[in-house]
Computed example of a mutant assay.
Amino acid sequence: MITIGLALTAVVAAQSPSPLDLARFADNAAKAALAKYSDRGVKPDQIGITLAVLDRKGNSFQSGSYRGAEAMYPASVVKMFFLAYAGHLLEKKKLRMTPELERAVHDMIVDSVNDATGLVLETVTGTTGGPELSPKELARWMDKRQAVNRWFASLGYPTLNACQKTWNEGPYGRERQGYGPHFELRNSLSPNVCVRLMSDIALDKIVSPGQCAWMRGYLSRAIPADSKETNEQSKLFSGKVLPSGTKLWSKAGWTDTVRHDVAYIQLPDGREFVYAIFTKDHSNEAGLIPFIASAMLKELGVKPVE
């Protein structure tokens, strides 16, 4: 009986969900969250979920989503895009790593420090903050700030906006000018585009394998089920519900209006998934993202940590 059970487990683990399954899993997780949090006023258009399964042998991924193409303000999730562009410049030898830049990259991803992010974005785009600029000077400055967007567009990524710093208080001077009169040029990402980037990092596709490994080193998180030394981007987000033995790489983001998590997980049975869970207007609902992640794990046949 034990041998048969193990064989059946291996067969189940080897089977990959189809895109239709993944879309259904994301939809079911959203419906479960909307039902559980109905008394908190969570609405369908305040959630976005994309779930992908990695095919390492085929060096590809398939995904399905619930409102996955809908863009939101990404908060600190955008830092993953700055990291990837830095990796590209390092690979092409257009950027020289220094101890100070390495410190800033570490703090930007590991601890999600906004001041560190400012240095990284200035370095990779050749721009600096400062006093207001004339219209002509501002146009040149903003063109430089589009470097990250242009690179992702050249790779065939869907429309995204990753050109602004992240803030503790807010932009001033030319940084404020760069947002447009009504903040219409704020950073903007969808769950779909975040899942693509994390999948490309996991599969060594976005840049060279060496640079992808460098990025994964910063994105790696211990999970509460296996360690007491956990980063808040794990213990306060979906890492909270991952079962023992699961490996996690992630980037979370939160402000007073949004709360997001983008994660790449390797389950104990060897299966690999990437998901992005975006929520808005309920950033004080700390349990919402872990609940959605837990619901998706159940759809995948995995028992989450309750």
Rank of each mutant, 00 (worst) to 15 (best):
residue 198 M to N: 05
residue 205 K to C: 04
residue 16 S to Y: 07
residue 1 M to R: 12
residue 258 V to P: 00
residue 82 F to M: 11
residue 121 L to C: 09
residue 224 P to R: 04
residue 68 G to N: 07
residue 74 P to R: 03
residue 175 E to S: 06
residue 130 G to N: 10
residue 167 W to D: 08
residue 227 S to H: 07
residue 93 K to H: 13
residue 219 L to D: 02
residue 255 T to A: 14
residue 141 W to R: 01
residue 76 S to G: 13
residue 203 L to A: 08
residue 114 N to G: 10
residue 95 L to T: 14
residue 231 N to G: 06
residue 99 P to M: 10
residue 8 L to T: 08
residue 278 F to K: 00
residue 76 S to N: 11
residue 248 L to P: 01
residue 94 K to V: 00
residue 57 K to D: 12
residue 15 Q to D: 07
residue 50 T to W: 01
residue 19 P to Y: 02
residue 71 A to W: 03
residue 36 K to D: 10
residue 156 G to E: 05
residue 95 L to V: 14
residue 2 I to S: 07
residue 26 A to E: 03
residue 275 Y to K: 06
residue 220 S to I: 05
residue 243 P to H: 09
residue 46 Q to G: 06
residue 189 L to K: 04
residue 117 T to H: 12
residue 256 D to V: 08
residue 129 G to H: 06
residue 110 V to R: 09
residue 121 L to V: 13
residue 78 V to A: 14
residue 211 Q to T: 14
residue 42 V to N: 00
residue 67 R to W: 06
residue 116 A to F: 02
residue 179 Y to V: 06
residue 69 A to C: 08
residue 192 N to Y: 04
residue 248 L to Y: 04
residue 51 L to Q: 04
residue 190 S to D: 05
residue 81 F to C: 03
residue 27 D to E: 14
residue 152 F to Q: 00
residue 172 Y to Q: 09
residue 31 K to R: 15
residue 225 A to H: 04
residue 219 L to A: 10
residue 141 W to L: 01
residue 297 L to H: 03
residue 268 P to L: 11
residue 165 K to H: 15
residue 201 I to R: 00
residue 41 G to A: 13
residue 88 H to F: 07
residue 288 L to M: 09
residue 19 P to H: 04
residue 13 A to E: 05
residue 246 T to C: 07
residue 137 E to D: 15
residue 238 S to M: 11
residue 287 G to P: 03
residue 86 A to Y: 01
residue 154 S to F: 05
residue 227 S to P: 03
residue 206 I to W: 00
residue 161 N to R: 15
residue 43 K to I: 11
residue 7 A to R: 10
residue 202 A to M: 08
residue 66 Y to V: 12
residue 253 G to M: 02
residue 254 W to N: 07
residue 41 G to F: 13
residue 247 K to C: 10
residue 76 S to K: 05
residue 182 H to A: 15
residue 71 A to M: 12
residue 128 T to H: 15
residue 210 G to K: 13
residue 14 A to K: 07
residue 249 W to H: 11
residue 23 A to S: 14
residue 98 T to C: 10
residue 210 G to W: 07
residue 6 L to E: 14
residue 297 L to N: 01
